[in-house]
Nucleic acid binder design. Structure first.
Lengths: 185, 185, 185, 185
DNA sequence: TATGAATGAGTCTTCATTCAT
DNA sequence: AATGAATGAAGACTCATTCAT
């Protein structure tokens, strides 16, 4: 018996977990990451107690949502790389049509708390690194395809993505400086 | 008596007001617009009561900070336009060196509340319009100078500034779409 | 299990609710309807949070106390009508010995806030109407018994009760005029 | 010179005082004796500072308003006694047409605080005693005139006025008992 | 294991009172 | 003497978190 007696319970628990993350993601986006935990629980169709059983506190929940978000972005990035005929088209698809990317970014920016949670979560970093690796490949391929200016990989894509996905601390005094001088000519 | 009839009261009150806005601006940036009002008051060196006398509630305070921020941006934009020898250099100076711009933007993005406050404040809109007017002039001049590609005015500058200064609602379903296709070639 | 599915939770909650209303009633009478909510909670033996869970704000609490008060008056009026041998004796019992009636009235008069709450609560009005219906019956019966002057029903009883139980607005300019002329001869 | 240099100032001060009392009386009636002092000051057309110069705290203000109210009632009672041809008519005029009386009463009942202030103010008591003295005379005269039942003086007039003007503590357990038994036959 | 009632610390906000001008 | 700005203590209310059922 590979499937023990716990399987149905596990799947119920899993459903709960997913519903909570989905509800939290939606409410974070709409109302910021300060929404009452009880509201999230209600939206997810569970009691607060259940929410707290899965996620010991708000930070844990934000972390889980962040991982989920970045995980989805990673999937989309890979899908684009796999499915589009050229690297260039993959990049265009990602940048112009990825709503997920923007939502993910928004969560990261939306509050000092969520920013800090993401900054400090190693698992999220790993996902971000995987995303960046795929993107780097894409950029290099696109340049090899002759579809992209040579200075873009470290420039614009960074402005649009790296800024968003990397741990750049906007509040710190250190400007990433956006490589702007080169760009506007 | 050199001073006008209300000068003594006004000057103290004015100083307080400025201190409160400065404190609020700093703390909003560092900790988000949810920082305890009492903390802001302490930082400003006044009692909570004084803070509430000037700004009936948090929204009023956020609004005042936003106006102040955008007002400073406007000053900087005008200063750059006036002081730099060419429009092009003015643009570069603004985009590469304006910390104020980034801070202003950050407040706008940092929470649903501040976003909504800015979106609904007519006075802020007027300042934003003035900023955009100066920027439009600069872009047109830079293009006349031959220093800027013709498609930039409506493109990149918009990506960097318009997105930031205009009332684009990131949370809405409608993508500004970022004119990306043209950009990456 | 003898108890129904919600009995355990409900019974504790119900007890809390009753304790809160009792505490509020007592403190409203002694200190007015402005007593700190926290004091009421303490008196009731619960935390403030519990108080607010049952009654979202002070108005809701005043309303609940008013309904409870008038409900008790209704019970007493009915009891008097049922238990006394004659209508006349029922009336005397009510007017001379009903402490509840006076306390109820006092809450209504004690502050503009409680006055307004009672004035606007339809449920309270319904209870008041039931009270008045029983009283009307009693007066008519007493007159039939020959124990009461014919002009009393619309006069003194109204002065004492109707003024108290009906929605007469003392603060308005319109005098109920108290049918005084007839009375003092 | 009987009128010293202070006379104009004194009269200004007196005007201030009167305005404050008038404003306080109006606002106590409308909003209860908890209205913000600053609101009273504004209504009176003076600064808070001035209000506090005249009345060191809220209790002093309530006391002053109470004295003023009862003083006006006394004037009206005397006027009625003087101007009406018979005691009976004076009584009818007072009870049926004295709006002042009701307002005065209402202030006394309206909150535990004002109740206590009136209960403890000797000056107010003296005014109340004068009022009662005039009323007693009127009742006795009316009875001599044969216009009033002999049991009224201690009964109804007490119910209507004494209850209102005397220091009966409604909240105490001791019922004045309203001499009801005799009344309803 | 899921639920939601209870708790109370943390914030917001008001307003009596003081005091510099 | 009049003014109204400043203060901070007090009270309202919310919500994260715990825990009995």
């Amino acid at each position: 018996m590979t499937a023990g007696p716990e399987t149905p319970l596990r799947s119920g628990a899993r459903r709960n977990r997913d519903q909570i993350i989905a509800a939290a993601k939606a409410m974070f986006l709409e109302l910021g990451p300060d929404v009452p935990m009880e509201g999230i629980a209600r939206q997810a169709g569970v009691g607060v107690g259940t929410l707290y059983r899965r996620f010991p506190d708000r930070v844990a929940l934000i972390r889980a949502v962040a991982r989920h978000n970045f995980g989805t972005v990673l999937e989309q990035v890979r899908a684009a790389a796999d499915e589009e005929p050229t690297a260039w088209e993959a990049i265009v698809r990602l940048l112009s049509r990825s709503r997920e990317l923007r939502l993910t970014v928004q969560l990261a920016l939306v509050s000092p708390l969520s920013w800090a949670v993401i900054r400090d979560d190693e698992t999220t970093h790993e996902i971000q690194d995987e995303i960046m690796a795929v993107l780097d490949d894409l950029v290099r391929s696109a340049q090899a395809e002759g579809k992209m200016r040579g200075d873009v990989g470290a420039g614009d894509l960074a402005v649009m993505c790296s800024l968003l996905l990397r741990r750049v601390d906007l509040a710190s005094g250190k400007d990433p400086d956006l490589i702007l001088d080169r760009r506007w000519s």
